[in-house]
Computed example of a mutant assay.
Amino acid sequence: MMTALATVLDIQDDIVVVGCQQKSSCNHCSSKDSCGTGIVSKVLPGKVHHWAFHTDKKLTIGQMVEIGLPEKNLLQSAAIVYLVPLLFLLIGAFISDALISPLVGVGELTTIVVAALSSWGGYVLAKSLSHRIEQNTEQQVSLIRVLGEPVSDTISVNAAR
């Protein structure tokens, strides 16, 4: 089980909605200032994932919690997102090079276009499949432990006393 820190965003009866920001591995290497990926990760904010689950513990909005996510689903989703478009790209290039290009007679341009279109088709399929896995993962999120109140709220409460 993988763990993540999350903030309680909403509470409705015994259903808790938490949000955790997607972490990037950028900003951890020595070439982050000259790397294109590192520069883009500084400009674009991370995606916030929302999870809803049932709990009997009393939580308040803004509280930090640790949640558990099933590894199997996350690894399946990552494999689908990366491998399906790549597989479709290779299959499209092979089919075009072996069958379509000799018939049309244009050459490499046909292979490039067919490979790009098949890769896009793989992306659409991967997005659909990963969305299904994400819905299954949402049903398996569990609360591991409650970490406490955010630091800014604690300081303002102590200052008011």
Rank of each mutant, 00 (worst) to 15 (best):
K58Q: 12
E71Q: 07
V65C: 11
V151Y: 09
G107C: 11
L86I: 11
I80P: 02
S30Y: 07
H131M: 11
A116P: 04
S118D: 10
V114S: 01
E108W: 08
M64V: 13
L44H: 04
S101A: 14
E138H: 10
I144R: 09
S25M: 10
T137V: 09
N27V: 09
R145Y: 02
I67H: 03
D56E: 14
T60C: 08
L143C: 03
K57P: 07
A78W: 00
I100C: 03
K42D: 12
G148F: 04
E71W: 04
C35K: 05
I80D: 01
L87H: 00
L143W: 03
E138Q: 14
S128T: 14
T111K: 06
L44K: 12
M64P: 03
H54E: 14
A93T: 10
S142G: 04
E108G: 12
V65I: 14
L75N: 13
Q21S: 14
K32H: 01
L125R: 04
A93L: 07
T37S: 14
P70G: 07
N73V: 02
S31V: 08
L143F: 01
S128Q: 13
I61D: 08
S101G: 03
W51S: 02
E66Y: 00
I112L: 13
S96H: 05
D33W: 01
S119Y: 02
L109R: 04
L125I: 15
G148I: 05
W51H: 12
K127W: 13
W51I: 07
T55I: 09
G148Y: 05
G38E: 05
T37F: 09
C29G: 04
S34L: 07
H50D: 08
K32A: 05
K42W: 02
S142F: 05
C29R: 02
G92H: 02
T60L: 09
Y82C: 10
L90Y: 13
E138S: 12
E66T: 08
H54F: 10
L83I: 10
L75R: 08
S96G: 15
E71G: 07
G68I: 01
P102R: 06
G148M: 07
T137K: 06
L99D: 05
V124N: 09
V48G: 02
T110G: 05
D33E: 11
A98R: 12
I61M: 13
S31K: 12
D56L: 10
L109F: 11
A78M: 04
I91S: 11
T110Q: 08
H28M: 02
I133G: 07
Q135A: 14
K32L: 02
Q76H: 09
V104Q: 11
K57Q: 15
Q139G: 02
K58F: 07
K32T: 06
A126P: 06
I95W: 01
L69K: 03
T37K: 08
L69W: 06
L75H: 10
E138T: 04
L69V: 13
E138Y: 03
S41E: 14
V84F: 11
V48S: 08
T60P: 02
I80H: 02
T37R: 06
P45G: 11
G62L: 03
K23Y: 02
S25R: 08
S24A: 06
P70Y: 02
S30P: 00
S128D: 11
D97H: 11
S96T: 10
I144S: 00
Q135P: 05
T110I: 14
I144G: 01
S34Q: 07
K127A: 13
G105D: 12
